[in-house]
Amino acid sequence: MNIPYTVEARPDTGLHNGKLGIWLFLASEVMLFGALFSTYILLRVGALEWPHGELSVPLGMINTIILIGSSVTMVMAWASLKLNDWGKHRLYLSGTFVLAAIFLVNKYFEYSEHLGNGEGPWHDTFFAIYFTLTGLHGLHIVGGMVVMAYFLGPGAKMWKTNPDQFANRIEITGLYWHFVDLVWIFLFPVLYLL
């Protein structure tokens, strides 16, 4: 059975189904991260003291720059497909994958340092919410990398059989990836600077 409206837009929504689907998924993600941000506010307002300067601002800033850069390469990977430039698409998508990996390596060093100092989630409320928020965000990075790896590997052959659907799939991947970037844009000041 063929899934309808993977390329052409549905008459009622004006969108292909994948796009509406990813936006509804992202809406649920807003509520997931929203619940955790709400938890952060509750913990912070209720705390007598809130630690400041526990995290490395330069490392957090580098990771912000890396994720913003990866958002640009992601959108360029989609734009390259629309311009029929397969080589550039591969370059940009690979670049996004590599930047995501660098982000995780930085996070690994950051986590290792804190855990080495005994500053795990059990240490205090700040580290509990820090590991919860950044851990969940990190899992989203891993999820995005799995999808990108698929489109760099076995999923890439769809470009030859159905290029429009492939471009739509990359667009959907990009929407997810920009959302992951957007969450970090709020996590960075909330956890590292305030």
Binding site: T13, G14, L15, K19, L20, W23, L24, A27
Partner: peptide, 8 residues
């Protein structure tokens, strides 16, 4: 499209 604005 409006469907996305509505959901958001």
């Amino acid at each position: 499209k409006r469907a996305i604005y509505g959901a958001l």
